[in-house]
Design a binder for these strands. Structure first.
Length: 193
DNA sequence: TCTCAGATCGTCT
DNA sequence: GACGATCTGAGAT
């Protein structure tokens, strides 16, 4: 299967966030379907990394179709894909539905499986959050600034029939923030954050 | 040098 | 569901 082209990401960030739902991410034999995304653009979204150019966030200003992976809260990584040329932006991948390499993911997440299948709750918990999915897939800052289709692939699954929920929140945190979050309705694997 | 973070998990109610 | 502890690094001053 062919990875999405770089041009797929050279569009309005909110549109890309919506269109990434249902796509497949694959890395080192593990794969999962994207079920939740969040769009981040530049000013006036002051809470976004794209609001201000810093050495860390420069990738959001300079590229599209590249992975932006940053470290948060001293423990976790967040996976983003940069978008739209000429405008800082990125889409945060918030949750994945695990498809392949589930035992591997469980191992990385410290889930004890033994010989039994994972319980439904354990399976849902593998990648139902930005930090969890990076841990499950073994994604770290070492993969920051790599192109989509390189070490990490993003495929179209062909899945089209699902209902999308769009949420917009204004004024979260201390800063003025616009937030566009999309998730596949009724999907068990979306995060609750 | 200092502050605080786009999250997670365990505990409590 | 609510809340607190966690703990490293980026960015501000």
């Amino acid at each position: 299967m062919k990875s999405l082209s770089k041009e797929f990401f050279n569009r309005n960030t909110v549109r890309v966030a919506r269109d990434l739902l249902g796509k497949i991410i694959e890395y080192k034999g593990a794969s999962g379907m994207i079920v939740e995304t969040e769009a981040y653009r530049g000013y006036p979204d002051e809470a976004s990394h794209a609001a201000k150019r810093t050495p860390r966030s420069a990738i959001m200003f300079d590229t599209h179709g590249f992975f932006y992976i940053y470290f948060v809260y001293g423990s976790y990584f967040c996976l983003n894909i940069t978008t739209e040329e000429g405008q800082p932006g990125a889409v945060l991948i918030r949750a994945l539905q695990p498809l392949r390499g589930i035992r591997m993911m469980a191992g990385r997440r410290g889930v004890k499986t033994g010989k039994n299948e994972l319980s439904r709750k354990q399976l849902v918990n593998l990648a139902s959050g930005p930090g969890k999915l990076c841990q499950a897939f073994g994604l770290t800052k070492a993969l920051n600034n790599t192109a989509v289709g390189g070490r990490i692939k993003v495929y179209s699954s062909g899945l089209k029939k699902f209902r999308v929920v769009k949420t917009t929140r204004v004024g979260i945190k201390k800063a003025v923030s616009l937030e566009w979050r999309f998730y596949i309705k009724d999907n068990l694997f979306v995060s609750r954050g």
